[in-house]
Design a binder for these strands. Structure first.
Lengths: 218, 218
DNA sequence: CTAAAATGTTAGAATAGTCTAACAAAAATT
DNA sequence: AATTTTTGTTAGACTATTCTAACATTTTAG
């Protein structure tokens, strides 16, 4: 498989997780590649048995395609974890580099990284790392936005990996694993006053709270 | 610069070190790419100011080209070192992977690896790692083949990175840094009986001795 | 339910990098 | 010096991936 094909599969996989149906236009926007190009590539991948394609119908990965995409995402996330844990990069700096390294052709290389990291199950953003079969674990997290006043939750993952969002979370001194107690929700703008790790108070806009994924305290 | 262009520069750099003059044919063989393709690529790189090119004349890198090639080789060798020291690969396994990772677009990535390795000056095969300006240190080593009986020398580098050669050196239990005392040279086939680290005796064919690079004991 | 808007497709062209076939120049050999 | 061999070049074609322009279908809105 070429680098280009891998990128199409990966994008389609991600879009399929986020939306019920994925259109050629969605894929086109997500890859920043014009529709006719996407159209022909989708046909090609359909010919290879990686995508179900019928004219004017939504796009879907076949099980082979899903597995292939999962394996690429696995590599991406392993690399991100490695970059953070062993090369000292910030979680806002690793995406671009992982985007390149994920295409390296060497199973052993990724196996070694997996081993070096002691077989992690999540990446630096809290996203699950697919297993060696490309199977991805379902994570049942809630958006902080949807939680009620007085609840205490644990920060498990982020809903966006946008640079500016990650940098903001850093600035707010929030880290994965932190406990968050919701002190007050403003009726006017749905912003939240929260207590982090029973120590520091922070004010979070609704937009930020929408991208903070949490689980309830067990 | 594209991956392809980088590979042409690197190959030309290596050939220039090995031979007085480098022809289009040499480059063609080294890259396993047909002459007409090489011819047009060389013209392109000449247009970019990386290669001096005149019809029917030997090929030469410009100083810009030399620097660019040096920087790619730097990345390659840093990565090889990393693969051996941190991911536990053997020195016979790292070339192919480094060949891919050397093209990653991220200065910081290689800077971090350099730092993690504590700024190494040689790669796992004893070859010098070019500095941040692509400048490569000259190494004045002798072929073991050319040394005389009774001399004691130190194994500093290998003259070939062929898989089969490296595996043989492993099998002979020879490592960079080992001392080698030449006990006897057979007149018939120029094979050498040597004493390694004052401990084990080995018999080395002339072909092996020709690819073992050494310095005299200081 | 028809018209407009959005989405999807086809056709044809562009670029990068590769090739083969044919020809040209330089080098080696006799 | 003439011929052969080796090396180098040109021309033209192919594949992968991209694009724009034109057209088609589906969906949405009045």
């Amino acid at each position: 498989m070429t680098l280009t094909e891998e990128n199409y599969l990966k994008a389609l996989f991600h879009l399929s997780t986020e939306n019920e149906e994925v259109s050629v236009l969605d894929l086109s926007k997500s890859l920043d590649i014009k529709m006719p190009t996407v159209n022909s590539m989708v046909k090609k991948l359909s010919g290879k048995g990686l995508i179900f394609y019928e004219k004017y119908k939504p796009l879907m990965l076949t099980s082979t395609g899903k597995r292939a995409a999962g394996l690429i995402i696995r590599k991406h996330r392993l690399v991100e974890m490695f970059l953070v844990q062993h090369l000292g990069f910030g979680w806002d700096e690793v995406h671009e580099i992982a985007e390149q390294i994920e295409h390296i052709k060497s199973q052993r290389f990724f196996d070694r990284i997996d081993q070096l990291l002691d077989f992690p199950t999540v990446d630096p953003h809290g996203s699950p790392i697919p297993d060696i079969n490309g199977e991805i674990a379902f994570q049942n997290y809630k958006k902080l936005e949807e939680c009620a006043e007085k609840q205490t939750v644990v920060f498990m993952s982020v809903g966006s990996s946008q640079d500016s969002f990650l940098k903001l979370i850093d600035k707010l001194n929030l880290k994965l694993g932190d406990s968050i107690q919701i002190l007050e929700i403003q009726e006017f703008d749905k912003s939240m006053r929260v207590l982090v790790n029973n120590q520091t108070e922070q004010l979070l806009s609704q937009m930020v709270a929408a991208n903070i994924l949490v689980k309830l305290m067990s």
